[in-house]
Design a protein around this nucleic acid. Structure first.
Lengths: 332, 332
DNA sequence: AATGCAATCGGAACCGGTTCCAAATCGATC
DNA sequence: GATCGATTTGGAACCGGTTCCGATTGCATT
């Protein structure tokens, strides 16, 4: 049913090499060019991608491995990647790892099998296994969100994000603070953000901080928040992600605590929802979309054999909104 | 650098047809089986997908065309599709149409070119162009969210959703209501939901309803909400999507209106955020995830040449939450 | 009209698999 | 040890393109 290049060649009475040359802009006489134009159009000819890739030994696909599809950060990053790749005439193949390291590794191998031009990976943690597979794959692998000294990466300044947030809330007069973080297995979110925050705390005398840990899920965060409220009744809870902050907001509502007067809350991420809820959530904006665009550009340059910067650190921005009370004013 | 089947054959001292047979579970003696097992492992052989697909003339890819990547509904649906396809050993290729009909059509053609096994399409509207391309593509196309008498589809009971919501809010005593909908070009969201709601209104005497229209964007909804509040000061605003409802919630906060006592608000969708915000949003839950799973199953069966039900209507569920005031109690 | 050069074209090989068919091998039986 | 049938194997064709190379054609020049 679908026409092949040989069919076209036969219909036009030329060799298939001529048809191929016509299709790829090789030297073809005006006469045959016109004839082939007509025939390919009438026959509705579309070249077979596999045959092309088989010969070319490559594709214009960029594989993207995301931890999950239904997260704001992942969605924004994917949108950025997609926009950039499409502009360059390529395509994005999305692989959902479902927050499972095994599947992340499988995905890399599978994408390598499919000879994608490059892989963009958003891992929770970079393990030696990742490096091994990336090396064996023989195609460029670029990390987003987590750095590595062995792979190219686009990362956020998580340390500075923590520092900015820490300094800001201390400025606002908070001295009894709970930090609700995530596992330290996550270098960027788990360690760096916390480290930045801890540095800010160190710069300030007489501040008591209680560290807690949650998963990335809203429901989990909410449960831990209840424990925090019982155990140490802080004036503020700094949450490692906006989603965690949403869980804490929920817990505060349930406890009947008004935000920010009875409990201040902050997040990290800059999710759209932070501006929608009331009060709006003070957070640090991470440029997910821009990271996606940049990652796509870089991985395409890598695929083309160019040298690119080893690591790009994207800047973050503190968004001062309504969920943090200014204790200085109140105590006047 | 990458080994081919011929390399393996040479190393093992057999014909490449034997290697192929070994790989695909054909009849091979125990001895050569063991030898090939060892050699393929040591050589790290991985078959070339293109060569396989070229011969097989098909892939195990399912193409998914979404209107946008950063929407709750799309993310949930994609997650469902992905889960189901992965379980069947297939893969999902995501195409982001960016809410642009032209790109939707392009995507269909491009996916057809790549000989995907089937296409899952989430269109805002089904046009004759869609049907034409779907027909020409020669591969199964399944719609999610919008129906058509020419294509297989998985849809939601939008009419019933509107009806349920309408009846519920009328039960709660609301008689001065604004309905903030979307363009009627969108058959499901724009027409059916509104029609269901309108039917409920018809069943009830003495109810005044004001119809407005917004885009799907939170920011737009917020602007229109301000106009609604000025123009007709309803006791309740029924919004065609949860995102629109979020925009209205925002506007209400800005106007200092307390929800639900001074203004009740409802949405449609059942986005996660509706349970997080305070007050929680009364809405109708749409089974996006289940729709994705079902769509994936169906499109795979279609790809296998099986007959499947032409249209599946998934049921919706009213979620009574806190954003609707019960006027009956108040007026006692 | 013969010559030379560039533009155009056809044929064949190749990419890396799968599959068909015929040939070779094997073990069991007589 | 010859015969038979079942297994196993090798060879070749094929999928649908691209590309190399040599042959043909066209055109301008002498």
């Amino acid at each position: 049913m679908n026409k092949t290049i040989s069919d076209i060649a036969q219909m036009a009475g030329v060799a298939k090499s001529t048809v191929s040359r016509y299709l790829n802009g090789g030297s073809v006489s005006v006469k045959t060019k016109q004839k082939l134009e007509r025939i390919t159009r009438e026959a509705g000819y579309v070249p077979n991608t596999f045959a092309q890739s088989l010969k070319a030994k490559r594709t214009n696909l960029i594989g993207t491995i995301v931890p999950r599809l239904d997260s704001f950060a992942a969605a924004q990053t994917m949108t950025g990647i997609d926009e950039e790749i499409r502009a360059a005439g390529g395509q994005m193949l999305i692989y959902n790892a479902g927050q499972d390291r095994e599947r992340e590794l499988e995905a890399m191998q599978e994408l390598a099998r499919q000879k994608v031009a490059g892989i963009i990976l958003m891992p929770a943690r970079v393990t030696p296994e990742h490096l091994r597979i990336a090396e064996a794959a023989g195609i460029p692998v670029l990390l987003v969100g987590q750095g590595s000294d062995k792979l190219h990466s686009v990362i956020y300044d998580d340390h500075r994000a923590g520092l900015l947030m820490g300094r800001y809330v201390l400025e606002q007069g908070h001295r009894r603070i709970a930090y609700l973080g995530v596992t330290e297995e996550d270098e960027a979110v788990g360690r760096q953000r916390k480290a930045g925050f801890a540095q800010a705390v160190q710069e300030c005398a007489g501040c008591e901080v209680f560290y807690y840990e949650s998963s990335f899920k809203i429901a989990d965060a909410r449960l831990i928040a209840e424990r925090i409220l019982e155990e140490c009744s802080p004036t503020l809870i700094v949450c490692a992600t906006d989603n965690i902050a949403l869980g804490v907001v929920k817990a505060a509502h349930i406890h009947g605590l008004s935000i920010p007067h009875e409990l201040s809350i902050t997040g990290f991420g800059g999710y759209e929802v932070t501006e929608i809820i009331h009060p709006t959530l003070t957070t640090v904006r991470f440029p997910y979309f821009e990271a996606g665009k940049l990652a796509a550009r870089l991985v395409q340059r890598l695929a083309a054999g160019e040298e690119v910067e080893w690591q790009t650190i994207l800047d973050v921005e503190l968004l001062r909104q309504e969920s943090v009370d200014n204790l200085n004013i109140r105590s006047l």
